[in-house]
Design a protein around this nucleic acid. Structure first.
Lengths: 184, 184, 184, 184
DNA sequence: AATGAATGAGCCTTCATTCAT
DNA sequence: GATGAATGAAGGCTCATTCAT
């Protein structure tokens, strides 16, 4: 029970449980007691690792919505394929659950909102960058490029939410193709 | 001061207050006492009109996300303009506040989720219909048309949320133009 | 709606409803709104006839646990038969529902307790009186006669309650016979 | 101050307080806050031990109306004395307070009703058994024996209630003597 | 007399958080 | 570190009662 490995595992299990529950019922509707229960740890231990309940959410957002520096490898002449590659990288950075949490709790907690803003900005930036590299010449209209990047980011971020909530699925590849065609 | 008028006003004021507060801090984080306070009515009156707190949300969703039958008047040969017109009709059906509420509470309450699904489906259907009418010939690829409609609906629905949360604004007109270009 | 007959009926229907509900779930657990509903009258009317909720209970007890003056006609030489006759008169004075109410609410409201006390005293007195008349000579032990009267009263009063609650039925006639035999 | 001791004491004190208050004013009329106050514990602790208010009542009934297996030791030839002995054992199993609670709350809560039924059946069975053993020969009428047992049980169970409510006292010993005489 | 909207005190219950061990 | 009893503030909801019409 008292080796550092076990300890690390308890903390991780708490975050795992919180991620699942926050994504499911929301932060407010999730008692810390239920997080502890699902994590299989005593209630007091949650407060040992996270002095306030909000720290669980903040830690989750800080540690599980990675904003990496590496850009996608653009394929010149294939903007659609490049965007599709970008789309497939997103879940590695923020799981569908974490994206759901970011949206749901964004306007309740500043740190979450900030993180969502940064994630959104990053995806737009990468979409723009990828499109610039992938497009034959950069003769494209700058405003249209911006709209394209923003649209793609919006679709990417909301995709699972929309599917989960309404049952309607949007295929990122089809959107990538659509956008590429619009800029082509 | 007229009784039937006053009565109607009290209920309406409660819904107004709830709409504002639910959109702001979320359903769970909004005490009924605060709804009453903002509405300027005693706490008990909220429960007179809405026996359970959830009934406030359900009534809000039922009464303020109207799904009307009338379609937008398509302008043949101008798909971008037609989509823009559609975009300007949306707030009449569901205010930005209501759309925010629909998203945030969707996975907690079935009736809200259902309403969001119907609203989304309706916007996709209208976008598709408007594009079909507006496009010169219907030689467009059906799958691409579908992706276009879904993308436009996603952007419309999420637009204010995204702006509110991240500060990043997407111009529906620019997206309409982008999509029109992709299909043109 | 406004003739005195209708009015009288509304008051009666309210008391009928209250008797049923108080006997079933208890005074505290019965909202006045539910009484009005079962009586088929608007909520406000209950308070028109009975300014306080407690007045419904008090009126019920006052009007429906009649303490009459007439004694049972004793049959000399047949104490058992005389007690049985007495037993059959009891429901006319206080229905099983009213007796249940008397017991349940007795220690919550003084007026109810008083009425229960008077009803109990009356039944004991009549049992004693009936036995004195029915017994061949009054050579019986006075203390034993007192115990007999009290026992018979207790059994009579609790009879339906006991049966209703525990499913165990006590036959008043058998107890009358038992007591008669003890005194014979 | 010892932790496990303190803990046990807190729960016990809550039950003690509840027993007193439920017997006095009734279950519905007793706020949990008042139980806590009388028990000298914070309000929240009541719900720590008893998640719902009804659990306090159920626990009380489960833990404080013991139905033991040991029978009373019958004295052959002295049915009155045997019944009196039985009467003196009853308070050990269910205090007057608990009997009052059993009656008052019986028709609202199934578990209470069941317990009352079992207690009543047990007392009848023991009375019958004691009388059979105590009576010289078993030539007594079986039906009359049954009526005697049921009557004695009714008097035993209702005795304090009746006294408490009406001020009229029934002496169990006198009833025991009466019944013995009836069967003798 | 009849009606139901209006009012607010009070209750059960939840839950984050503390703390002694 | 680990544990769960202890604490009390706050929220949803009920309901007797009032009152304008």
């Amino acid at each position: 029970m008292d080796d550092p490995l076990e300890t690390a595992k308890a903390r991780t299990r708490i975050l795992d449980a919180a991620e699942e529950l926050f994504a499911g019922g929301g932060y407010d509707a999730t008692p810390t007691a239920r997080i502890a229960e699902l994590a299989g740890v005593p209630k007091g231990l949650v407060f040992h690792y996270f002095p306030r309940k909000i720290d669980v959410l903040v830690s989750l957002v800080d540690e599980r919505t990675l904003v990496t520096e590496e850009d996608v490898e653009a394929v010149p002449g294939d903007p659609a394929g490049t965007l599709s590659k970008l789309a497939r990288m997103l879940p590695l950075r923020a799981s569908p659950d974490m994206r759901r949490i970011l949206f749901r709790e964004a306007d309740t907690h500043r740190s979450v909102r900030d993180r969502l803003g940064r994630l959104n900005a990053e995806i737009i930036r990468r979409s723009r960058f990828a499109l610039e590299l992938a497009l034959p010449g950069s003769r494209g209209d700058a405003a249209r490029l911006e709209a394209a990047a923003a649209t793609f980011a919006a679709v990417l971020l909301y995709q699972e939410s929309l599917c989960l909530l309404t049952g309607h699925h949007i295929d990122p590849d089809a959107v990538a193709e659509l956008i590429a065609h619009a800029l082509g």
